[in-house]
Every structure is written in structure tokens, then in C-alpha cells.
Amino acid sequence: MKALLPFPLLSATLLAVWLVLNQTVSPGHILLGSALALLGGWTMTALEPARSRIRRPRAIGRLFVLVLADVVRSNIAVARIIFGVPRRSITSGFLDIPLELRNPYGLAVLACIITATPGTLWVGFDPARGILTLHILDLIDETTWIDTIKGRYERLLLEIFE
């Protein structure tokens, strides 16, 4: 089983993408998509990605809702800064945040979240010291931002991946 399906989640995703792209659930396409999914899984073994397990699938839902709310809020905040009349001086700047998260998939998800919320941008991560560098458009209060990243996202990601 392990030799046939080395990455079950990846293969399932590939099959789902194939069916959605072709907009059909006909047996022929399911067969073709399954063949592609198996092939994709075998190709992935050659790349030897780091293995990881999702420990708390239920936390994913909570994280998704949290991120969705934050995306809407920060969209409004950034739109307000862009249209700011009269334009106040924006205090943007770089911010270093120490992280406990080390799982590469957790970090990748965190990068997606931080980039998807306008107003924050991932600049770099130093794996040796565990320090994440962000650029923040509206950097008035550093502790609020550190609390947001660490308290809201990192805690849930640690629950999910570690």
C-alpha cells in the first residue's frame, strides 16, 4: 500500500483537481485522473520531501475562519490607508518576531497567511535562530502585531503540525 500510494493526500488532491478542471465525474476521467494521481505520487518520492502528519484536522477549520475574517478586516484597513485623506504619514517598517514553529509545512502555511492578509509581508525566516522578519504597512504598535502572529496563527499551526 505504501509503495503504491506514497503520498495519499497529494494523490487525492491531484485526482480532485483533474476532475474539477474537466468538470466531470465520468468513469473514464476518474480512471485517467487516478493514473495521473498515482504517477504524481511516485514522482514525488524522487524529490524526497520532509514527512509530516496533520495531528488536529479540526483546528484547520478554525484557522480558516480566523484567516478569512482577518483577510476581510485587513483589506478594509489597507484600502483606508490608500485613500487616507488627508494623508497622514504612514509608519511602515520591518519587524522581527521569534517563532517556535519549525515544521516546514507549518511555515509554508504561515507564509501564505501572512501574504494573503494585506498590510503584512513575509521578508525572511532565519531557521538557525527561529526569527521571522516581516514588513508591516501600519506599524504603530509592535506588540499587537507580535501577539497577532504568535497568539492567533502560530498557536493553531503548532496544534495542527507539531
Binding site: 483577510v71 476581510v72 483589506n75 489597507v78 484600502a79 490608500i82 504612514i90 511602515s92 501574504t115 494573503a116 492578509t117 494585506p118 498590510g119 503584512t120 509581508l121 514588513h135 504597512l137
Partner: peptide, 16 residues
């Protein structure tokens, strides 16, 4: 006004 501020702007279009 600054490049590092401008980088934030297009993410409005790429998200919501």
C-alpha cells in the same frame, strides 16, 4: 511613496 509600502497594495487585488 516607498517601494516597501507599494508592495502591500496589489495584495488587495490578489486576495479579496
Amino acid at each position: 511613496r516607498q517601494f516597501y509600502e507599494r508592495v502591500h497594495a496589489p495584495t488587495l487585488g490578489t486576495t479579496l
